[in-house]
Amino acid sequence: MTNYEKIEAFFDGELTEAERESLLREIESDPALKQEFELQKDIIEGIKAYRKEQLIARLDKLDVATSGQVSLLKALGLAGLAGILLVGGYILLKPEVQEPANNSNTNTEQPRASEQVKDTYQEATADAQPVEATEQEAESKEVAAPTKASSTGKENQKKVSTPPAVAIPEFAEPDNEEPQVADEALEAPSPVASAAVRLKENTTVEVKFSKRYKFHYQVKDGGLILYGKFDQGPFEVIEVKTSKGIASYLYYHNNFYCLETDSEEIKPLVAVTNPELIKQLEKRR
């Protein structure tokens, strides 16, 4: 075995402990061997440095301005703002409709499917634009409600929270829930910008992250709280008049979900499966 091979074997971890010690002793007493050893050590360091440099150069080229956490927050901010508009419209419509006669049924789409679905849904916010949230907006703890607030005034505006209110401490404490929602943001940054929000003004809505509730909703104090990954749109609330009253549905990711307004319980969003009802709801959209 040549000196080069011995040194190579040393750095590749192929020598036994005894062989290693023997080589190190040899190095101490042989300047030429020591020189070769130092050179090989430097070359390996050079190879590592070069590879590291390549990896960092690769990372450096990546566009981070519109991705990662920022886009997640933006997406969530947009979802929240869209939700504000959407539920605002829902609440405004609420006084105009009758309560469903029997709203304790958790699987309401079945009877409704055979009923004549009449659209009471209004294109109330025909001017509702997809909302572009800035980074500051997305990171702010409170975002003012739409300026259309007139009857409910400041009180309502103060209640309106956007999802980043939950996300903020997660920058400092990564143990929190942020990564649970981050994967979707990776694939489709800020898709909510195109969310079709059709309902109008003035109510409170919160989109919250929760370890417990992954895809749930709650109707509370006239507002809607969504729990889960609402970072992709479009989504809409659709109301249909039935013989039993007004039934509300959330449209999200090509699915319709029944919204029960009879209690303040946190409930899972259950997708409508009845094909006939889906067909009717599609028409209403």
């Binding site: 990546l62 981070v64 991705s67 990662g68 956490q69 920022v70 990776l186």
Partner: peptide
């Protein structure tokens, strides 16, 4: 995948 991770946590 490393690129994805890098982007994901950049701001944080």
């Amino acid at each position: 995948a490393l690129d994805l991770i890098y982007r994901k946590y950049y701001r944080m």
